[in-house]
């Protein structure tokens, strides 16, 4: 996610000096401190689940889910476990930045969509929880299984990028939107009466709504490395990276970073995806350390996100 907040050489020099001499960033954080995110859930009444995430500065991401039933029929003995389907659609709002006006939003949208799709690939538990109903019947001695699954589409709208770290904000928004998505129970109804058709029917009973299982849904952590050494006029700064990465970068830090690594992982502490960007390469030991650090933080973040959502749902129920 390229930002147009390019800093002058003097600003970059101060940023690197503060970090190297005092381990301090311009906003007063230590290198490893994350910012607080402002999170609102159930923002869009027409969506199944939704969340809005804001970071200081003006990073703002809105995510909403929409659901659709898909029914399948399989003949004979079943071999594979049926899974639901999860798709992503990302849009960068033109008002967020001049860069995203017109066709400028296409490349970042495609990049973010493929990133989200790839980090959600290992989330099989989530997709299996999208299984809605199953019905086996014996048709002239042959087994026939009907089943239906939910197909979830997550719409992500990036409303602001001024605070940096849009990827992490987007993963939080997606996970929170999924966690607040409740799916109704589905039952198979044989045709009743004359002309009645058989089919899957939604059970209109709030007690039997089930939340989506998000324990395997990943979050991401972005770490960036600043370069030290010579400042050159064309923005490529220095020759070697500072040893300690900066976690949760602001837009200014992102724009002057020499290397960035986004690590995605769920609560299970297994790696779901890594994305590396930047003008300098990273040595393997640094990557290993950063990935380990990222996975630990992702797990912590998942736990605190789950706690926050549970709390806000409890508060909403208490209000009713």
């Amino acid at each position: 996610m390229e930002s147009n907040k390019r800093l002058s050489r003097h600003e970059q020099a101060v940023m690197v000096q503060l970090l190297r001499a005092h381990g301090l960033r311009v906003d007063g954080r230590a290198a490893a401190t994350e910012r607080h995110m402002t999170l609102e859930t159930e923002e869009i009444p027409s969506a199944a689940g939704s969340a809005r995430v804001r970071l200081p500065g003006s990073t703002e991401v809105l995510a909403g889910t929409s659901t659709e039933l898909q029914s399948h029929v399989s003949e004979g003995a079943q071999t594979t476990i049926p899974e639901g389907c999860l798709t992503f659609r990302v849009e960068f709002c033109g008002a967020a930045d001049r860069l995203y006006q017109g066709r400028g939003a296409e490349a970042p949208s495609a990049e973010m969509t493929s990133l989200l799709a790839s980090i959600y690939q290992p989330a099989r538990r989530l997709r299996r929880s999208l299984m809605a109903g199953q019905q086996t019947e014996d048709v002239r001695g042959q087994l026939r299984t009907r089943y239906c699954c939910w197909s979830l589409c997550v719409d992500v709208l990036v409303l602001g990028t001024g605070g940096g770290n849009v990827v992490d904000a987007a993963t939080v928004a997606v996970r929170a939107a999924l966690a607040t998505t409740y799916l109704p129970a589905v039952e198979w109804r044989e045709g009743v009466g004359r002309g009645g058709t058989a089919g899957w029917e939604l059970v209109d009973d709030w007690e039997r709504y089930q939340p989506v299982d998000v324990t395997s849904a990943p979050l991401s952590i972005t770490l960036v490395w600043m370069a030290e050494g010579k400042g050159t006029a064309d923005g490529v700064t220095g020759e070697s990276i500072l040893p300690d990465p900066v976690v949760d970068p602001s837009a200014e830090e992102e724009s002057s970073a020499a290397a960035a690594l986004t690590v995605a992982s769920a609560g299970s502490r297994h790696l779901c995806g890594v994305l590396q960007r930047g003008v300098l390469s990273l040595p393997p030991e640094t990557v290993k350390k950063a990935v380990e650090q990222g996975i630990t933080r992702c797990a912590e973040r998942c736990a605190s996100l789950d706690a926050f959502i549970a709390e806000s749902i409890a508060a909403a129920e208490a209000d009713e």
């Binding site: 020099a13 000096q17 001499a21 311009v26 007063g28």
Partner: peptide, 23 residues
């Protein structure tokens, strides 16, 4: 490069004050 590299890093109280004023 000397113009950029030659500037000495601010002292720790100065750095903290800079962050405080910014925030």
């Amino acid at each position: 490069d000397a113009a950029v590299g030659g500037v000495t890093a601010p002292s720790r109280p100065q750095a903290l004050a800079l962050c405080r004023v910014r925030n």
